[in-house]
Simulated scan of single mutants.
Amino acid sequence: MLTIGYRPDTGEWVCNSPGGPYRFGSGWVAPAAVLPDLVFPVREQDGRVGPLVGVLISASSLSALLAGKKPWLETVIRSIHKAGGISVVSAAAGIGEKTVSGYLFVPTLHRFIEAAAPLPDVVYNRVKSREEEESEPFQTAAAQLSAHGVPLVNRSFFRKSDVYDALRSDRRLWPHLLPTAPVQTATDLRAWLRQYSCIYLKRDDGARGMGLFRLTALSETEAICEYPGGQKRFCSLDALASLIQSGRYIAQALAETDEWNGRRYDLRVLAHWHNGRHTITGIGVRSADVESVTTHVFHGGTILPYKEVKERIDEAALERLIALSGARLGERFGFVGEFSADIGVGSEQQLYIYEINAKPMVFDEPEIEARRLERLNQLFAELAHRTP
């Protein structure tokens, strides 16, 4: 480790080590006889210090972060510093042609200060909405980073239909995919129910079980629609037409899955790019209440220790599934450094991909989150062309 300093009045980064100057992101740490008050211990390797990691967040999240109301994000940032890196947080508008303007976390002060830094070695995208990712400031920032060869982890949210199309391109993944397609009319629903009798309806851009329904045919015209918090009987599927026309919905066939103590469960698999492929970082398990539509804890699901079902899981097959899925996602969406997958387990140990998420939520299991921080810092180091 060596120590570098930051001068807020000039925006200059300096170092008094005789081995300098050192490469720092897209810029340099200048030599100085005396370090300023703000100093940071950093790793040095082959004439480079850091890595310098940009954390890209929504402009509306900045005030909450500065007020200490983004604890998970602050934990990630602290871990970057602990690993010998430096993190600068900004909204998309803060990314310029050669520098980034935002906020620097100072571990010795336990707070953020306004700061400027060279363009980072890598940027971790935690913008919270699709709408903001589609905005002009974000698109301009992403283009700016791309032009300078700065990796962006991850470029965008996924839509369920796009994920399905990406995975469908690989025949090896077909046994793990449930029939899935967009639905736009009541006629579409009738056709699905005639073939499968019970299906899930999901918003193409939904998350955490929001916009999720289970539809079960009672007759050619009648159906039960179950959703988190209740159910409703429809005498005609035409009554659902306004719902599926209100947004982009997909239908997905129901899988016959394994149960634990009479309850359905599925796996929440966290994965990261590591040494040239996607590997499993952690496995969580979520169990549904007897009558529940979803296993999401947000809608009444229960956290189940992985050890309870571990013997039912073909872990080697799961590792292969994650590696293959990550490769196909990368082909479709560009570099994917991190994702989570909701995986169903069949009665004969079959593995079914329900959906894949580009920006995993915080896992309730502390051991998974600890491993996640470790893997993220390994990823940032790898992308910055350093040995983790």
Rank of each mutant, 00 (worst) to 15 (best):
V89C: 12
G11D: 03
D188Y: 05
G229P: 07
F339G: 04
Y164L: 01
L376H: 03
H176K: 02
V293H: 05
N16I: 04
C235M: 13
F24I: 13
D314K: 04
I80C: 07
A92P: 14
P305Y: 13
I244L: 15
G211L: 10
L267N: 08
E355D: 07
A316F: 12
S26F: 11
F157L: 10
L243N: 05
V123A: 00
R7A: 08
V336G: 09
S287M: 15
I343R: 11
D258Y: 15
Q378H: 14
D188P: 01
A223I: 02
E259P: 06
I303L: 14
R155Y: 13
G25E: 11
A271Y: 02
Q245N: 08
H176F: 00
G96E: 14
S61H: 10
A141K: 01
P388E: 09
P175R: 12
V309L: 02
D314P: 05
P51M: 09
Q252I: 02
S61C: 03
H81D: 14
T185N: 08
V42G: 07
N275F: 02
H296T: 01
L376D: 03
V39L: 04
R190N: 09
L240Q: 11
S169Y: 08
S169C: 13
T294Y: 03
H176R: 00
G206R: 11
Y354C: 10
A32Q: 14
Y265M: 13
E338H: 04
A217L: 00
P179F: 04
A384R: 03
G330D: 12
K128Y: 04
I80E: 08
F335K: 14
E338F: 06
R168H: 09
E131P: 00
T185Q: 12
G230L: 11
A141M: 06
G330W: 00
G20M: 05
R248V: 14
V88Q: 02
G84P: 10
W273Q: 00
T221M: 03
Y354A: 11
G47Q: 05
N16H: 12
P8R: 01
G344M: 15
Q252C: 00
L62P: 00
G346H: 11
L201M: 01
G209R: 04
L351S: 08
R48L: 03
R48D: 01
G27Y: 06
L318W: 13
Q245E: 15
I224A: 06
D37G: 08
V100S: 01
S61Q: 14
S101G: 06
R171F: 14
H385Y: 09
S61E: 15
Q195M: 11
D258Q: 15
F158Y: 15
E136K: 10
K307I: 10
E319H: 06
P71H: 11
F157N: 07
R386S: 00
V89G: 12
A253N: 01
A317H: 07
H81C: 11
G19K: 06
Y6L: 00
A141E: 05
V285A: 12
Y22K: 04
S87Y: 08
L52A: 14
R332F: 07
W174N: 12
T180S: 04
L376S: 01
R372N: 14
V336F: 03
